[in-house]
Structures are given as C-alpha cells and as structure tokens.
Nucleic acid binder design. Structure first.
Length: 860
RNA sequence: GGGCAAGUGGCGGAAUUGGUAUACGCGCUAGUCUUAGGAACUAGUCCCGCAAGGGUUGAGGGUUCGAGUCCCUCCUUGCCCACCA
C-alpha cells in the first residue's frame, strides 16, 4: 500500500507493533491454572523448525485456532493455547547437514526465525508454556515413557497394558498360554536361562528389540519408515531406498489395533482422517483353514478373508519368502528351479524395483495341499510373486474371484472350471444363490465370474465362517494390515534410547533417576555410513554400553500436548492436578498429512498411558479440524523450486496483520485447498480501513438511539459469527462481518455500545484494530478478555419478509408476508399477484411453506 | 486397481441442508473528488435480449408441487492407500 498513512487509514505498522508489545507486557494471553472456569484446550500441531521459513499457507491453521481460542476466551473459558517445537528428527538434521551448522545451533536459529515470523501475526499463545522436544528437560520424559513401554506387555484378556513382571509371574505359575498356543510349561520356564527368558519376554514387550527387513537408504546412511518413502525414494533428498536386515527397536502398536479402530467412533474428527486410519489399520475377519501338505504331512494354516469361495478354489499360492518353501522342494526335482526363482524375486524386491502389476510371476512346487474341509480335492501349491509373506499366514488358497489369482491361473494354465458346493445343504443353497462359482468357458477362454454383484456378501461370509468353525475345518481369525512401527533411527539428532547392553547380551533399561540420558555434544553429527548412528563412533558411549540408536521423529510429538499442561514439572511429565484440570485436547488443528503417522502414534501412546492411569482419558484429541493446503496462484504447491512462494512477512508488512489474518480466513472453506491471491488481500484491508473510519461516527455519550433494524441485524450477526466460529466456517463469518459493516456505514451516528459489540465480533479476526479502537472508546482492560456478545432473540425483529411464488415449479412473482398473516391470506395474495399465469386454469393444489415459498400447481 | 472428496460467474466462493441460485470479496466498466491515482467514494457487473421475457449450478436420466442439494449412469479433477486374497 503506497498511500500515505493519514487518519483515514489504520496505521498498521505502528499499531500492530504497539499492541503485540502491550499484550506481551501485560501477559494478556497467559493461561491460569484455574479450575473455576470451564477449561478449553485449543492446540495447533507444532512445527518442525525447518529453516526454510514460513509461507502464507503455514499460518492458516494457526490463525484459525487463534480465532477459535480468542472467541472461547471471551466466552469465559479458561483457554490453554500453547505453541512449541518438534525440534528433533530428520528434517532438522538434514537442514543442519546441508548448511554445515550443528543441529542444536541450527534448531535454535530456526526457532528464532520462526518465532519472529509468528509474532507479527499477533497470535494469542501463552508463550510461557513453550516446549521443545530437543530440550533434555522435555526428552527426559520421552525416555521415561519409552522405558515404561519397554517394561510392559499387552494383556489380551484384560485388554490393556500391564507391567512385564505380571507376565513373568504368569509364566512362572502356568507357563505359556497368553498368546493362544502353549509353547512351554511352568516347569520348562523355570529351567530356562536368564538370556532365554529375556528373549521370550522380548516377544511381548511393547517396546521391543528385533530384526527386520528395513528400508535402507544408502544416500542418507539411515533406515526410513514407510511413510518417509515416496515411490521407492526417500522423501527427503530423493535417494534410492533398498531392503536390508537390521537390528531395530519396535513399538508394538499392533497390540492396540482394535482399540485404535473402535476408538475412532466417538471422536469428532473429519471423516477423511477417520477413513484413512481405518484403512491403515485394515481389519479383516476371516478364517485360518487347517490343512496338511500331501506326502510331507506338514500341517499349515491358510488365511482367507473371503472364505465364501473356498469350495471353488483350485490351487494354492505361497509367498516366495515363506520359510516353508525350502521344505516343500527339498530333495525334489523342483528344488533347483524353485530356489533360483525365489532368489530372483527376492533380489528384485530388495532393490525396490519390483513392479507388481507387470511382473506377475510364479512357479509350481510339485506339492499339493491335501483335500481340506469338504472340498474333496487336492490343490497344487504354486509360488507366486504377488503373495505377501507377512500378512495372514503367507499362504493363500486361490479362487477365480480374485483378479490376481485369475490372471495367474490364466498365465500358467491352471484349470479353474471345477465347481463344487459345500456338503452342508443349507449353506450350499446360499452359496449357490450367489452364482459366483461358475466359470463359463464357451470358446475355450476362461471367463471371470461377476463378483459380489449386489449380494449380501458379508452376511454369507458369517454363515460360511460359522459353518467352517463348527465343523472344525478352520478357526475364526482377525487380521490387521497395520504393522508394528520401527522405533529407531541410526542418526544423531534424536532422543537417545535409554538402555544399556551388557557383555552377556542383557538389555538394561535406565532408572528414572538416571534420566535424562543426554545426547552427547559431538562435532561430527553426520551419518557414519555404516548404517550405525554417529553415537557408535563415540568411545565413551560405547564403553558405557549405551544403545546407539536414537528415537525417530515421532517420539516427542506422541505426547508433547501433555507437557503443555505443566511444562516446568521436574518430577513428572505433568502433575496429576494439571492432568485432571486440562484432561485432553478439546480442539486440535493440523493437516491431514499426519493421519497415519503422528495422529495414530499419539493415540497409541495415550491409550498406553491411560492403561496405567497416567492420563485421565482414553483418547488425546476430542475434536480435530484439518486445514486445506494453500497453493500458489498458479494452482501448484508453493515451493522454492517453482519460485512461487509467498511470504507472510511481506503480506503483513504491506497490508497489516489484521488484513492478513482476515484474508487467511476469508479465502475459502477452512478444509479446502485453495490458491493464494495476494491481490485479493486488498479487500480485507479495505474492510479494516472502513472499520477505522466508522469509529468517527461513534456517539460517545451513548445518546443516539440506534435503528431497531440495525440492532436486529447486529443480533443476527452475533448468532451467525458465534456459530460460524464454532463450526470453523470462518469464510462466511468474515462475510457476515462485512455485511454488517455495509449496514452500519450509512448510519449518521452509531451508539457507543453498539459499536463496541461490533468491535468484539471482529476482535478474534482483526485483533489489533479492535483493541486500538476499543481503547480509544475509553476501555481500560483488553477487548480480548472482555465478554463475548450474547445473542438476544428478542432484539431480532420479526420483520416482513418477501417470499417467492412458484407456478408449476417456475418462479413467477414475489409476495410480502406480514408476521400475523394466515396461510389463506398469503395464498390469496399470491394468487392475485401471479393472476396472469393462473387465469382460466384449474388449480390442482397450493403449497405454502412458512417463510419460504408459495407453490401453485395448475393444470397446464 | 481400491477408498475418500469435489465440480456453481473472469477469479476465491455463498446458498438457512429439498424452498426466490450466484451472498461476501477480488477483478472489470462508468462516474465523483483530485496537480495526479495503482488511493478513496458512488453506481453497475451470471448468460441471451432494446425490451417484455427466456435460460443457467460438469453431461444425461429419475424422484418431487419444487433439485446446486436426494437417487442412477457417465465425464473431469484433487487427495490417500496401493499385490493385505
């Protein structure tokens, strides 16, 4: 804005700074640990201090949560609205390595930049509660929770986490049996060595050590989680990723799969995130068939989540990596070719080069599954490239109804045209009714039958499962797609895992008094390339026997919201009193990109803490709102490489904080992705200026009687703004404020009280101009702790309204309706108005919807 | 391939959830004031038409007195998961 700033303009440079300073000085937004008022915890997902700085998309969620928090504060809630930094993790470390600045320094610098950028937006955070996950006083408790997880197992019977000692006690008294199968008796348990016992206990711990095939990224010299890989390349840097066996720490999140799924129901979250989590957890109900390998007499289980088709299955497929494969072909004519095939597939997969669609491949093992259930025939066992080894049992009975199985059968000429129905007559009838099992083969070409076509598939499945279980052919089995999460990074910049390994191979968790285990300050923090963490290169660290892996980026973010409740506590992650006061997050704002990461992990940790009574609620985030992404005006993502990044600092400098905040909210629906248009901010800037000028019309003596119509409009707006902010419909709230301003402007004079009400309504959005004018009206206390206007239905005039008149569905006129008018009066009036359209025609009926419409139906 | 959203003026979008489509803002046009305007203010701005009038919510069909909104088919776009049988 080039124009000179005279008194017709809001001098944003001067006044924004003035109020930001004043609020800070007076601690206007400091949260009291006060239980008298109703609590309201409004939380933003805290950012990585990445160093790239903010673009205009970042503050969108922060402004929204701020508007919400400000209204709640004015409504009399005790509002907790904090901000902090997710300072550990790959993002911060990558930045440090690239710029050759030690991560601890780089993070500090970035936080400074970040806070400077945030401060000019005028957000109402209680900065005294600021936390950083890389602060030892913080990560002491991340480590503490880790140890608690390590010292726990999941009791499926009680359906909660319990101390590992209770499991030892069970083993001691009754032997194994907690996981269904009895692998050892109590006597056998006692005869085990310490190391052997530890090994078995490790299979139950919620934080556990194990080996697994991991995503190894040579470019970064580290292991990556699945969600850090995009199309076979690392999310950061774009380096190729391959498979490698490695010692890892894991989180047994799978133990909580069912609770994570059922807990979603009662949450006030977007359907989108709920659906993503539901699919990610991937629950499926099916059966494990009890089968035997013919000639070898090896018992195997085959998982099938669509057992309706079992009688139509004519072959079996097994994953190439399955350990059984070796036994199947040992000493047979097939051994050489099969093992060569397995090696080929494994190699391809390890390089992440396997294109599943194009490279369907397989080989016959020469073995058969002995006739099982009531199928009455043996099934040839094939190795198929598309079978997933670690889902179900890794062995699948193939049916024509599955596209892959069908394509596979076609490719290898496996006959499929055999149909047999179950011996159970009732069931056979139902199954036959589905008409799915028939493969027509008119010209020697196999046809895949129509699947599922409008039938109650799930219902039949239950019948089939019950039948199979009753007859003893199979057991009911629930499977989840969700796997345990890797909880270790071979990197420097993360929380050290608080464990020691002794020479005998025992794992010794640190005691609480030994925490925090500080991250040593080293000169070289870059990956050492062997796949081990830089900590493995520190002699004193190794000598002490400390674990060299560090925690992944999501460790601190899985519980940080609890720390805000009591950020300085030295004896607990938060005091019981603080936890009781704040309980859980009432409103959480952030992007959907964390749906399968942070939002799942933090629910898991929270449920774990809940099992021990350490937090008062079973779910951490009662309500969740997701902001859409702000795109550049060209419709693409904002990024340095496109050169289309718009910086909030410039916008704020030119148009002021209030105009910027208003525009962030006005741009469109909060959850939509929208293109940014710096040109359009002028609109909200004009709004601010017009509010500023309107103040000249205020009658300080309160003597002017405001028009009843205007008062009515003010109250309608109070209602609208309140409900719009509650439902995150910020764009229509701003529009309603503009409409009210349009109404107020033509007034000669405005009553002081009414203008104050207007200022209160704009205060959550245009916080600075509202505060300045509020003060000018003579108010001593901040507008932001004043009382939110109350809607008074009595002040709303039941004014005359104009409704439409339709004749045969077409709009033909309008009629003015008075409050007391009867239906007959209105209809008669309407008929008179549209007389030319109904004259001489037979009226079939008339419909009157109160305050909405009159509809007349005539014979054409 | 599967799942979830969404298609309304030149642009961002609104529509009380089945009841006068295009609120609010940007942009544009004309005017006022000005040494000046890329400031401010006033008026206009979905399309066709001088008008009366007619048409319009991605396309087509259906339900209804009445459909942007509900149902079916298709097209397009975005996001998420992708061999989980």
């Amino acid at each position: 804005m080039k124009s000179p700033m005279n008194n017709h303009f809001y001098d944003h440079k001067k006044l924004d700074a003035k109020w930001q300073k004043e609020w800070q000085k007076k601690e206007t937004y400091k949260t009291a640990q006060n239980a008298k008022k109703k609590k309201m915890y409004v939380l933003d997902m805290f950012p990585y201090p990445s160093g790239a700085g903010l673009h205009v998309g970042h503050p969108r969620g922060y402004v929204a949560s701020d508007v919400y928090a400000r209204m709640k504060r004015m409504q009399g809630y005790n509002v907790l609205h904090p901000m902090g930094y997710d300072a550990f993790g790959l993002a911060a470390e990558q930045y440090a390595i690239k710029n050759k600045i030690h991560p601890s320094k780089a993070v500090q610098d970035n936080i400074k930049t970040f806070e400077k950028q945030l401060s000019i937006i005028g957000l109402s955070y209680d900065w005294s509660r600021r936390v950083s996950t890389a602060d030892p006083e913080f990560y002491k408790w991340t480590q503490w929770i880790f140890i608690k997880l390590y010292n726990s197992w999941y009791d499926q019977k009680k359906n909660k986490a319990r101390p590992i000692e209770t499991l030892e006690a069970i083993f001691k008294a009754k032997g194994d049996g907690v996981s269904g199968e009895k692998r050892f008796t109590a006597k056998e348990w006692k005869s085990l060595s310490k190391i052997e016992k530890a090994k078995i206990l490790m299979e139950y711990r919620l934080a556990y050590e194990g080996y697994s095939e991991v995503n190894w990224c040579p470019g970064l010299g580290t292991v990556l989680a699945n969600d850090e890989i995009i199309n076979g390349k690392s999310e950061r840097g774009g380096f190729p990723v391959e498979k490698k066996q490695m010692r890892q720490w894991f989180m047994r999140i799978s133990a909580y799969a069912d609770r994570l799924l059922s807990g979603l129901e009662k949450l006030d979250w977007s359907n989108q995130v709920k659906t993503i989590q539901t699919n990610w957890i991937g629950k499926s109900v099916g059966v494990n068939f009890k089968c035997v390998i013919k000639d070898l007499d090896i018992p195997v289980q085959m998982y099938n989540s669509v057992p309706q088709t079992y009688h139509a299955e004519t072959f079996t497929v097994i994953a190439p990596e399955h350990p059984l494969v070796v036994e199947l072909v040992k000493g047979t004519e097939h051994e050489k070719s099969v093992m060569a095939f397995v090696d080929k597939i494994k190699k391809k997969k390890s390089q992440n080069k396997f294109d599943m669609d194009k490279e369907m491949d397989g080989i016959f093992t020469g073995r058969y599954i002995k006739s099982f259930a009531d199928t009455g025939r043996d099934l040839p066992i094939w190795i198929a490239s598309y079978v997933v080894a670690d889902y179900g049992t890794g062995i699948v009975n193939a049916s024509v109804h599955d596209e892959r199985d069908f394509a596979f059968a076609k490719k290898f000429n496996i006959p499929l045209n055999v149909v047999m129905l179950p011996a159970d007559k009732e069931l056979a009838k139902k199954v036959k009714a589905l008409e799915f099992a028939y493969v027509k083969d008119p010209n020697g070409i196999m046809q895949q039958p129509a699947r599922f076509a409008g039938r109650k598939w799930g219902e039949v499945r239950e019948d089939v499962i019950n039948h199979l279980v009753e007859k003893g052919f199979a057991t009911r089995k629930i499977n989840y797609k969700m796997r345990d999460a890797i909880f270790a990074r071979q990197r420097y910049w993360g929380e050290p895992i608080p464990l020691k390994h002794d020479k005998e191979g025992n794992v010794i968790p640190l005691k609480t008094s030994e925490l925090p285990l500080n991250l040593p300050n080293v000169k070289s923090y870059e990956p050492i390339g062997t796949g081990e963490s830089p900590l493995a290169g520190i002699p004193s660290w190794i000598k002490a026997g400390y674990e060299t892996n560090t925690m992944p980026g999501w460790a601190g973010s899985s519980w940080y919201f609890l720390r805000y409740m009591d950020p300085k506590n030295k004896s607990a992650f938060a005091s019981p009193a603080a936890l009781k006061l704040w309980r859980d997050v009432d409103m959480y704002i952030g992007g959907t990109e964390h749906a399968t990461g942070h939002l799942l992990y933090s629910r898991f940790w929270h449920k774990f803490l809940f099992d021990y009574g350490l937090v008062p609620t079973d779910e951490p985030f009662k309500a969740l709102r997701n902001q859409g992404m702000i795109l550049a005006s060209d419709g693409r993502k904002m990024s340095k490489s496109w050169g289309n990044v718009v910086n909030p600092d410039e916008c704020v400098a030119t148009y002021g904080s209030d105009a910027f905040r208003l525009y962030e909210m006005f741009i469109g629906p909060f959850d939509s992705s929208l293109p940014w248009s710096t040109d359009s901010i002028i609109g909200t800037r004009r709004f601010v200026d017009r509010v500023w000028r309107l103040a000249d019309k205020v009658d300080m003596k309160n003597a002017v009687k405001t028009d009843a119509k205007v008062i009515s409009h003010i109250h309608k707006t109070i209602k609208k703004i309140t409900s719009d902010i509650d439902t995150f419909s910020f764009n229509t709230a701003v529009a309603a404020l503009m409409i009210l301003l349009n109404e107020l402007e033509p007034q000669e004079k405005i009553n002081k009280k009414d203008f104050e009400t207007f200022l209160k309504l704009i205060a959550p959005f245009a916080s600075h101009v509202a505060e300045e004018l509020w003060t000018k009206l003579g108010n001593k206390k901040s507008i932001h702790i004043s009382e939110w206007p109350k809607f008074d239905a009595k002040k709303v005039l039941a004014d005359t309204i104009i409704i439409g008149i339709q004749v045969n569905g077409k709009l033909r006129g309008e009629v003015e309706v008075e409050v007391g008018d009867s239906e007959k009066e209105i209809v008669d009036k309407a008929l008179a108005i549209v007389q030319s359209h109904v004259e001489g025609k037979e009226i079939i009926k008339t419909i009157y919807v109160k305050d909405k419409i009159v509809s007349i139906v005539i014979k054409p």
